[in-house]
Simulated assay, not measured.
Amino acid sequence: MPLIASYAMAVTLVAAWLAWRLLSLRARRKNRSVFGPWPVPTVALGAFDPAFNATEFGPGLDGEVHFISQGDRPAVGGVSDLESWILSVLAKRRTRIFEFGTCTGKTTYHLARNSPADARIVTLTLPPEGHGAYAASDRDDKEHGEIALRESRFTEFLYTGTEAAGKVEQLYGDSKALDDAPHAGSFDLIFVDGSHAHSYVVSDTEKALRMVRPGGIVLWHDYRPKVPGVFRHLNELSKRLPLVHLARTSLVAYRKPG
């Protein structure tokens, strides 16, 4: 009898684990937690910015941009097509833009190509020969540190040699070493998409919040449970700032009052 009871308990535990796993996978696909919404509230794009308001025909002409799709071979470290479109639309009315994490330079190109003629895009990446400067914390998850280093291998970028390149100021170095004081309150739009290790998300976020001007926007990429550094910090940050999760994306946004 004890053997049968032990077997039944083991079967029950396995079944419970499988059910939990299936619910977790389903929740990830739908950008929700297993038992409810994520801590950062989700809003429709049009509720965040009128440029995304739909017409009876779908997105209006305010959403027209120069755009390169992911196609059938997604770029290394790239954002989704919807996320690229959102960034491109927002760039149309911003003249001072900062990007944490250049990677291939595809997002940099979208920001530069769609921004006004007098816009300046400053983008920061760790150069291939500068990996030794990467300052991981003991509490950072190793996986996302390794991803950050793998994606910091470019010395030429998608924007290189294009008409958009003249708007771009390429910085090289570790973002934790960035002196943000000269940039305080000076950027209209900041995109945080550097290392997703927790200590870097915290550091980049603190700098972005100091660098964004009143009325400006900060966007973070990869808000989802499987990216714990981003997910955990933004959930904590949402307790003191009115962050919003943009529907059907992994983007979280904050518009600075003023």
Rank of each mutant, 00 (worst) to 15 (best):
Y200G: 00
A27D: 07
R28F: 13
K142C: 10
E236M: 06
G185D: 01
P127F: 08
V168A: 12
A177I: 04
A19S: 11
T249S: 14
G77K: 05
F35W: 15
S203H: 09
T42G: 09
N31I: 07
L61Y: 14
L149G: 02
G161C: 03
P127A: 12
T102L: 12
N53G: 12
V201M: 02
T42P: 09
T42E: 14
R26T: 04
L234Y: 01
A177H: 15
L246M: 03
M211L: 06
L171W: 15
A148Y: 08
K167M: 07
G258Q: 04
A5R: 13
T95L: 12
A247S: 15
R96L: 01
F154P: 04
I217F: 10
G185I: 01
A5M: 10
R139G: 08
A184K: 03
I86S: 08
V230D: 00
L126I: 04
A15L: 07
V244L: 02
V79S: 12
F67V: 04
K167A: 12
L209K: 02
S24C: 10
Y254V: 02
G258D: 04
L158A: 15
T249V: 11
I86Y: 13
K176E: 11
H131W: 14
D193S: 00
R120C: 10
R32I: 08
G161E: 03
G145T: 00
T108Y: 12
L237G: 01
P225V: 07
L251P: 10
T162M: 14
V212I: 05
S199F: 05
E169V: 06
D81P: 05
F187D: 03
R21V: 03
G161R: 00
L178R: 09
F191R: 00
T123W: 14
Y159V: 11
S186D: 03
I86P: 15
E56T: 07
P127K: 06
G161D: 02
H198G: 05
L18A: 09
G78M: 04
L61C: 11
F57E: 15
G77Y: 07
P127V: 01
